[in-house]
Design a binder for these strands. Sequence first.
DNA 1: GTGGTCTAGACCACG
DNA 2: GTGGTCTAGACCACT
Lengths: 124, 124, 124, 124
Amino acid sequence: MLIQIDMSIDKPIYEQIRDAIIKGILKGELTKGKQLPSSRALASSLSVNMHTVNKAYNILKQDGFVSVIKRKGVVINDKNQYRADEAYLNILEEKLESIVTEAKCRGLTADEINSIIGKIYNQI
Amino acid sequence: MLIQIDMSIDKPIYEQIRDAIIKGILKGELTKGKQLPSSRALASSLSVNMHTVNKAYNILKQDGFVSVIKRKGVVINDKNQYRADEAYLNILEEKLESIVTEAKCRGLTADEINSIIGKIYNQI
Amino acid sequence: MLIQIDMSIDKPIYEQIRDAIIKGILKGELTKGKQLPSSRALASSLSVNMHTVNKAYNILKQDGFVSVIKRKGVVINDKNQYRADEAYLNILEEKLESIVTEAKCRGLTADEINSIIGKIYNQI
Amino acid sequence: MLIQIDMSIDKPIYEQIRDAIIKGILKGELTKGKQLPSSRALASSLSVNMHTVNKAYNILKQDGFVSVIKRKGVVINDKNQYRADEAYLNILEEKLESIVTEAKCRGLTADEINSIIGKIYNQI
DNA sequence: GTGGTCTAGACCACG
DNA sequence: GTGGTCTAGACCACT
């Protein structure tokens, strides 16, 4: 499980960590019950601050991807603890709205957008 | 052409203005050659800072949606000045990547994502 | 609106701040749209760190009590944004379970507990 | 008498043990004079540290629920050794205060809270 | 001047 | 040795 942080882009570090872990779950590298590195350890290996890692871990916990077990560590949850629900679908739609609007305005058809989605979906 | 600013969400105001104008173009309310309100006027009617409107206008100009014509104001460009190109497609793919990753991780199929896209696409 | 922090009890400071603000809402001192002091200002007046105040504010935001408006401040939400829902009722039940169990074990009747609840409910 | 420890919630293990034993007393599984397993034995069967069990036992002793008898072990006390007194009622009220405040703020009536209490009270 | 993000370093409870 | 909490102080984007 490799996490790459890019300080030059403007995505916050904690989001990059969050996204990398979600990707790890998706790729099957992080399976249910598997333990993440301690916040100190990951912080040190990424050369970032412990609190930054903790922030990522707490967001993942809030989103149901992991359980933070005090004095034990952070472990990956079961799939159905982060299966898409109504609330998530609303957020997803919101996130997509301005992207799709711009794409349509720039002349892309729904099919063209969908083929990009499909490409991303299959290559991860 | 109505622009609604929502201070409570964390999308920057200049992005909300930008998105609203792109939406206006898409809906046919803002057609080629049509003039946008002066930044002073729009700022006043939205109760935001003039620099915020200018920032939105400059991004729109950079993206090819409008031209800033001296002593004339800001006018909407022709469609082919902002038609999707290679560079835009790369940015689009980047924007979609982490969204699609999370959606897949949460159990959505590519078809389900596409149907959300389709829904957004058709209702705007 | 007075907030009192007690360093000697073991309730975290950010929870004390959170609870004080909820109490303020309940007492009608903090009404919809009213602005909370900036995190710096409140931190300074309570002699605690800004991050501690921010943590309280973010929890209140997450729970629907306030909106955090970047570069503007934190404002109280409308009642129906924090009206009890299913999720809250579950949490509430969890919180009450061990308390009620102990009370029953110590010989209190349901009526006795309820009269304590009633007393608290009416005096705030 | 079954004790279930849940590492994933953030209630300390020693409190979970304490609560489980109080529940056992309430359900009549642990009656006056009955002996609790040795801390070593319970720790082993729960896969937790012996000190954690001892901490739970010591709190139970302090609260009057059990007596620690040398060379005999830990035995359940008589009901009137842990019957609710003034001190306990004060603690109880304190514990309930912030819970009730939030519930009221979220629009619950005293009756609604009491019906939740009643439900919990009767099902244990 | 606001909140957001990040760093560095500390103490604590729990186990 | 873990995560939780707190402090002190910094820079940034946005307005």
